[in-house]
Amino acid sequence: MPVDYRRQLIRLIEQHAHSEVMGALPEGTWITRAPGFKRKLALIAKVQDEVGHGQLLYNAAETLGKRREAMINDLLSGKSKYSNVFNYPAETWADVTVIGFLIDAAAIVNQVANAKGSYGPYCRALDRICYEESFHLKQGHDAFIELATGTNMQRQMLQEALNRWWQPIMHFFGPPDKTSVHGEKLMQWKVKMASNDDMRNQFPDAYVPKIWELGMTLPDAALQKNEAGRWQYTDPDWNLFFKVINGEGPCNAERMKVRKWAEESGRWVRTALMSHTAADMLPVA
């Protein structure tokens, strides 16, 4: 396996794994506050899935030779990144419904495409993930519809959440193709199966009508489909995107604080169970 192919795969899969785990933090805090028992149960199940996705992806990365401990250390030291979208706060329950519906939808666009890529262990992990994501999307859509068809106050709450999340969602697919550092090579190697801009265009095709049909709006007056079938939109603020990547988003610091705390306070369990004679190695792949 070519060295650079391996290195890029590790970088990408590891970032994806970190994103699943960090993404559970903003949603996890809403479990106790979710309205009603059924929503709480669904959210618990979803958050468990996301952490499970992290496990599947860490495993896929491990087959390439990087140990789990090294990946976690790189996350905690800030050396490796996770998706920017999880560095924003979920202010109200409406934010949680927008995340469950639209952020998961965006993740599905990305994961369905990459599941047809060239590295088997990553594709197999993505297949399993996509199967579970369909439930995430459906429960998010259901919660979204409930607010959109509810009282004026609920609709207003939802509209405000949509306004907050639209830009982070447009950011989600990564920088424009013309500025993306690794994009072209990753596409050539079939590690990434769709370019950032193509995914950013595919997303509104499937989901913007589902938002508009409920009478909700999106905070971009330029958003529309042209005759050629491509979506036109105002470019999101890419300077902000890079600021958040480099640690200056509204929640970067507290997400890392909580993640480090979890690692520290779980350590006694891990070490108590550790078997010092057991051989350690990598998965068979």
Partner: peptide
């Protein structure tokens, strides 16, 4: 806020 580094030791995540 004190950014004390947290380091996971080799083997702490057990066996595969």
């Amino acid at each position: 806020d004190a950014a004390a580094p947290v380091i996971v030791n080799d083997g702490e995540n057990w066996n595969i």
